[in-house]
Nucleic acid binder design. Structure first.
Lengths: 234, 234, 234, 234
DNA sequence: GATGAATGAGGTTTCATTCAT
DNA sequence: CATGAATGAAACCTCATTCAT
């Protein structure tokens, strides 16, 4: 069994190597231009190896996407769990970890972007993406509904969740497509402020300009936002 | 010259045919799976023709994207011009036309999505996309700044513009990736409400007429106004 | 239509080129060692052309076999028709043309041999082969039955047809596998003598040794035989 | 030495395993589609093992063919020896064992067929096949010559041997390619009758017992005797 | 100007063989 | 001695592009 276990471990390691190679290759060359050759080169392995560990290129591509999804999910869960049970805090934590991931793993983000662009025409990827998104949105909706309940505020949780989720995705998309337009921190702040405003919580730190805005009654400017990564995660 | 003009006209027509074929092919098969063959089939033309009108496949792809961009730009300008000079009305009109396009031309939207997914690795497309985005965001920023000025409200125009623009993109992305999660009308309403809330304008009747609507006495934020979506809508 | 006709003609010509290339390649290298490359080289065409005219390599291989079958069939029919209606003469003519083909087109014969060796594992080829064989055997059986009737001789036509057909195939097989063991003329004479003996007809020419045999009463030594090519033909 | 002997034994056993695996694989999948993987799977051994016991795949293939050839040879010799010295009885016994093998070991037959189809392009296999055939034909020729001598009949032994040998092969080929056209028993009867007719021996009881049958008073050709298959059988 | 036949580069995949464990 | 992971050659096929008609 020790041998079998070791073997299994090696197998997992090689699969990881190939997945990482895929991510590196796609990040560097794009989805189309990534060939079995570039992927295996990036993984430091020989071309034929892909057949040992995956059904083929498509399978590997899908698994790489699945890996990114799983990792984002895990990271977000951990961050959310760490802040306790308060729904707003959870949302804020999720938002933060989402945009942190943007800076920390732009490579992964680029792959995510590339996958968005092909998913509609790759049934399995499409399905995975939709499942993910629905779970994510429904989690956001629950959090928002709970937070509103706690505060005795009326919020259309569905619409708020949509606004949040799509804003986050939009910020991801925008930053991946043009990293100079704004920073992930900008995005994070805007979304977090939007969340706090939604529940009438004050902003924490003086946020660029906004803090200078007259505190009108309900200046709850909505800035919709949603974690790209979150979107891809839960 | 008449002959030359006619020729030019034919050339333009053929180019259009090929561009439309490209759009149809990408919408149906995705970016990767669209070949010169599928494109020309979709255009009802023969395979070799592409060389007469474009430098090659890549060029055609780029031109198709350029065409979509140009058309969207034009439509938006027209809608904005039609609504007069009021910045908020202009933003609302732009929002509306944007989401109307979603329903009216899902095919084009899918192509847009596909192009998003490859643009970072196609320098010319990337550049085009960035130019477009920057112009768009700066226009939004100006409109927001003007609208705020008119109302004597202090708004961080840059952040608001980012929030607006990325929310819109996020809704596009989400709807193209999963058309069942919400409707373009949902998206439009959420974004328009967000805009009105930003300026303390009350939500109103079906936004569809909003563009033509007279600027009523800004009834300011409705009651708690903190509901992302007020009473009406889903 | 002239253009369409010409095009069709060209298409047929290219298909023929590829089929001939296939035959030459298989004859020279065997079935396994024939690759798209060797086939196209033998045809004097480029590698990619195969996709224009056939579904793929397998399709081409099958068509090449079909071509050999069709040609053998045609040649045999023509030879049979040329000798009139007498069943024995028809059988003799078929036998002759069969073994003539052996000498005239050893290349085609080798391909036939190669196909025999793979047919059981290539459903379409197998089916074609079986259809062919059955039609051929039943024709032989009918001829034998008629010839026997004419002479008032009792012959088990089914068994005689089997003996004839398999003897011919056996001679083909043997000669293709070892061209030095006997000549096609040897084979032809043996089979023709067997046929004549079956119906009590005298042998035409003094055939090696056999003619010297004592004309015992009914020395109808059966030598079973069957045209390989015939077997593959009708 | 005991150890060395044991080792040798294991080696032989493994080689046998691989040879059997080869036969099973080829019978199931054909020559082309049999890979080292399928062969080792069929043998219940691991892929790399082939290198320990054979020079490579080609060598294994050749050895498998050699094994079939050797076994057939041995079986035939044994059957022939068992029947005594009478040449005709020997031929009948050889015929019988040949067609018995067809039914008893169709798998082996299929491999034989597959090898026929590649042998001309595999020099070593070709050579083996030719040696085998020549030895076989010359043995048949000797038997026929002896039987004719014994009876004072003049027979062209070479031609008769060719007819016999190719008829047998033809029946094998036909049955392997289409097992529904006739049974090996049909083939055996036809060939045995042909042999008996050649020497003016009457057809007799079920041939199955023929090998053990005492040489009865050659009742010479039956009546017209020109029926390929007398009264009995199908 | 329009067509599609022809080319050949390049992609994915399979496979025989080698070799470390 | 046995295993199967690793390699890289080579096969098939697709496809963008060119060019004669």
């Amino acid at each position: 069994m020790a041998i079998a276990a070791k073997r299994t471990k090696t197998i997992m390691a090689r699969r990881q190597d190939l997945i990482q190679g895929t991510i590196r290759s796609i990040a560097a060359l794009g989805y189309n231009n990534s060939t079995v050759q570039t992927i295996c080169d990036a993984a430091g392995l020989s071309r034929g190896l892909i057949g040992h560990y995956f059904k083929g290129k498509d399978d590997l591509l899908l698994e790489a996407f699945r890996y990114l999804v799983g990792r984002a999910d895990e990271e977000t869960r951990k961050a959310v769990r760490a802040v306790g049970d308060d729904p707003l805090q959870r949302l804020l934590a999720a938002t933060e970890v989402t945009f942190n991931r943007a800076s920390d793993d732009r490579e992964g983000g680029m792959v995510w972007l590339a996958c968005w662009g092909v998913a509609p025409w790759v049934p399995e990827m499409h399905e995975l993406q939709r499942k993910l998104w629905r779970r994510y949105r429904s989690w956001v909706e629950r959090m928002i509904a709970q937070a509103a309940d706690q505060r005795g505020i009326k919020v259309d949780a569905r619409r708020a969740a949509l606004a949040y989720a799509q804003m986050v995705d939009g910020f991801w998309l925008g930053w991946l497509s043009d990293r100079d337009a704004y920073t992930p921190e900008d995005a994070r702040d805007i979304v977090c402020d939007w969340l706090r405003d939604l529940f009438g919580e004050g902003r924490k730190a003086p946020v660029r300009g906004a803090a200078a805005r007259k505190p009108e009654p309900s200046s709850k400017a909505k800035s919709p936002a949603r974690k790209v990564s979150g979107g891809k995660k839960t």
